[in-house]
Design a protein around this nucleic acid. Sequence first.
RNA 1: CGCGGGGUGGAGCAGCUGGUAGCUCGUUGGGCUCAUAACCCAAAGGUCCAAGGUUCAAAUCCUUGCCCCGCAA
Length: 314
Amino acid sequence: MMNKDITIIYMGTPEFAVPPLLELCDRGYQVKLVVTQPDKARDRGKKIQFPPVKQAALQHGIEVLQPDRIKNNEEFMQRIREIRPDLIVVAAYGKLLPTELLEIPPLGCINIHASLLPKYRGAAPIHRSIINGEETTGITLMYMAEGLDTGDMIAWRSTAVDRKTMTELHDELSEMGAELLAETLPAIITGTADRIKQDDSKANYAPMIFKKDGLIDFHKTPEEIDQLVRGLNSWPAAYTMYRGEPMKVWEAEALSEETNESPGTVVEVSDKGIKVAAGGRLLRLTKIQMPGKKAMQVSEYLKGNKIEQGEVLG
RNA sequence: CGCGGGGUGGAGCAGCUGGUAGCUCGUUGGGCUCAUAACCCAAAGGUCCAAGGUUCAAAUCCUUGCCCCGCAA
């Protein structure tokens, strides 16, 4: 069977879901329909913005559907059935799919998830993996089931977290997901793909990230804060309060030096960064951003601003 | 029409109750020093986002536009 004989419906919303969609198009699969979340008025100026996946779909001339809800949406279900998809591929769509939908395609519904399942099921696997200090993470391809990321696994691939930021890891995993999908699809189509049950006893969840999750707690260790900084890079960013205003911290490094200063106290300020007491040791903030300003290295910030030793953050 | 901050020499900022632009850093040259990312001296470098307007005179006031950013969603 040729790729062009396979009809696929693709469901996804954010940037993460774009590479896999493009990969499917490149490989010649018939992506007949893209389902994505409704447009939303967001950002400055409250402008209506298309989800990234919608933009990509439109550029490829693919029909796009943006139902407010899928459950009990007969019109939507009808359209899906009309297309008679062989397969539905889902990547960060944003909502749980009803069983009724999962049962439509004969080859099944497969999902690309950004973690090594059964760990980090849920909305923010990449963020949480970094925040929790995981050494490795990865991509898992699975057959979708009723629960939240509980389906049988087909294939996975791992990568080291190292000191990558959320943005870097996100981009890497996104591409990795596209590759893994492309490589695994032939087996899925011929029905020879693996089907491995998840060990639920080892499962944990990666709940959605909220803005307030970015507030730095200087009682934590420098390492934990560094993980928070990297894990929330791009959005919403780790931050602390300085002179009554939020200071975003874009880069920081944990130092081994110990201190008796209370958490959040600025111990030393130099071009190399701002040393802050955290959990009995020191954390050096090296790249920060104040409201209305661009993110900048501390050395640059100090050329026009003063931060005094002894001031307290948080 | 969601709220708000800002666009000034390479960088970060001040000046903005109007009168030809200043600070810190950087750059270049020189000096000091065993030496230095330290210190001293000197120099270069700015259509003050753009276009109008008010005025004897605008970076400073008014209008419009463009761009950057924070909040809220």
